[in-house]
Simulated scan of single mutants.
Amino acid sequence: MAGLAYGAPFRPANDGEILERLPERAAGAPRGGVADAALAARAARVFLERARRSGDPRDYGYAQGLLQPWWSAPNAPDDILLLRATLKQHQHAFAAALADLDRLLTRSPDHAQAWLTRATIHRVRGALDAAAADCARLQTLAPGVVAELCRLATAAPRDPWGAGAGLDALDAAMAAQPDPVYAWYQAERAAAAQRRGDLVAAESAFVAGLARAPWDLGLRAAYADLLLEQGRAGAVITLLEDASNSEILRLAAVRAYLALGESARVTELTDALADTYAALRRRGDAPHLREEASFALFVERDAARALALARANFRDQRELADARLLLAAALAAGDARAIAGLRDWSEASGVRDVWLEARW
């Protein structure tokens, strides 16, 4: 987590001074846009893969820049539509991402990856019935462990016990899958275990996933949240010591340093995160409200602001972490109406989580 202190802006002495060298594997990516859609898609995928591993928002920007000639084109090629939807999903522009996937599937109804991406977005938004239908379609097109993982992951919010047993049964088959699929599998096992209150099983899944995919920022951040919930701030620092300076990991780190009373590191990381959120708003980008709400609640100790942000986040994102954050903010703010509203949603949707239920 080094290198986060911010001072006066650096100004190069002349136009020829090199500020940064891009990694070698990105050197072949075209600059300034390209006319060849297939070439642009291949290059954009390079930057997307790098962004998933580094958490550097510039890589998402580079990928979007390469797709700019087709960014608003409704008749863009299938690969461009899928990449466009993926970038919009990252930006939390879920409706726009779904619109691109719908265009793609109208034209290419057997596109398995599009169905999987569509299921993922529906599940993130809490549209579990729609996600289940997408997974069912995926099973007819590409039956196998990935389609079964899609089905079980969608069932887990309503039945973490039954779906958890199904996920455990996939363990041997998943061991042979590529690292990104294996990391996704272990993330789903961990989430199901957390919903049913089995924190030992959740930690085991996180450790297994990170052993194969230590670069998976989402998996690492979710594990850090579990450790913070258990009061294991020192373990969080160890977990993040070789991690990149992504927004989500810096948030976990500042919470850990707060718990350990290391004020100098807290100040560095707090300033860096505040700058990140301000920069997002200046650029007109949609902020990641889950992280900003968590920052307001656990770092700034501003329960009212945290609740407002968590509510706004929950309108679009309704995963395990989003529901728990909303309840934590509502409890901190003493807002009985928000607590009752979340309970009503849980009962109406059938979503189960022993952590939530213990706090109604």
Rank of each mutant, 00 (worst) to 15 (best):
C150Q: 05
L128F: 09
W161I: 14
A112E: 15
D168F: 01
P109G: 15
R137Q: 07
D129W: 00
A136W: 00
L149R: 01
L104K: 13
P157D: 11
L170M: 09
R123W: 07
V146H: 04
E148H: 00
A173R: 14
L116I: 10
L128I: 10
G166M: 02
D168E: 11
L149S: 05
L149T: 06
G162N: 05
V124M: 11
A165D: 10
H111M: 15
G166V: 06
A155M: 11
E148W: 00
A163I: 09
Q113Y: 11
W115C: 12
A155E: 12
V146L: 08
L152D: 05
H111W: 15
P143L: 00
W115Q: 14
W161M: 12
V146C: 01
A173M: 08
A130Y: 01
A173N: 08
G166A: 01
T106A: 15
D110T: 15
E148A: 04
L105M: 12
A131F: 01
A133L: 04
G126Y: 05
C150P: 09
A131V: 05
A163E: 07
L167M: 07
L116S: 12
A147L: 04
H111Q: 15
L138K: 06
S108A: 15
H111D: 15
A132T: 07
A127H: 10
A127F: 04
P160C: 12
T117L: 14
M174G: 02
R118K: 15
M174I: 08
P143I: 06
A114T: 09
L141I: 14
V145W: 01
L152G: 07
A155K: 00
A172P: 10
L105E: 09
L170G: 07
A114I: 11
L149Q: 01
G166L: 00
L167Q: 05
A114L: 02
A165W: 02
A169P: 08
A132E: 07
V145I: 08
R137P: 02
H122G: 08
